[in-house]
Design a protein around this nucleic acid. Sequence first.
DNA 1: CGGTATCCGGTCGGATACTG
DNA 2: CAGTATCCGACCGGATACCG
Lengths: 120, 120
Amino acid sequence: MNDECNGGIETALDIIVGKWKPVILFHLMSNDTLRFSELQRAIPKITKKMLTAQLRELEYHNIVNRKVYAQIPPKVEYSITEYGKGLKPVLLPMHKWGYQHLQHLDQLYGDNRESELKVK
Amino acid sequence: MNDECNGGIETALDIIVGKWKPVILFHLMSNDTLRFSELQRAIPKITKKMLTAQLRELEYHNIVNRKVYAQIPPKVEYSITEYGKGLKPVLLPMHKWGYQHLQHLDQLYGDNRESELKVK
DNA sequence: CGGTATCCGGTCGGATACTG
DNA sequence: CAGTATCCGACCGGATACCG
């Protein structure tokens, strides 16, 4: 971390931040391939607009693959690219830390703090 | 990653995301202790408002410590908490991946793509 | 020195309706 | 089925001025 150029962190954040990107990546990383509608069902509260937008950004950065089947009705499949799999060493520690952090909070304040957290 | 509950990632992101948090953490992690004005000088483009806001959020999550010296003129020192140091295993892979990603892009498109990146 | 207070523009994301 | 298009409110972050 005593390396110059902290910009690497911002670069990584730019790519994985977005209200829905973590969930999307989570599902794609555990499912190999998913259709647009399958993602929609897996993430009920997301709108098509958002799902499309976030997928496009991930696609732009070569994290996910978009495969269009030229047929009617249309069919589009999304999957993590090989390059995108390189994000696992980034996401796993994040997941681990975040999970432990939640436990830590529960242990400090008890288990029913949804409300307080939301209010921030 | 095939663990349920991807919320851990969002929890972690909530804490380390923010336009200036990565830079702030970077400086605090390599300097042990810094005054408000030192941080300001280290990050020239940040405003007091933003520096205060981001520090307060980090403090709220117990990532940084705020030590106020009751004297005139005032003096406030910031440092990473022991708990905050636990973020290193999260930030280091991020930094590494992001840095490699930048290299990856340079290798693909040549070195003068600042412009394109900004336009996105 | 180390902040608040206030204002304000731009962007993010949600709701809804429409389409090939 | 897999998207666009449009509108719109909320919030994020910058500029500036003031304060203990």
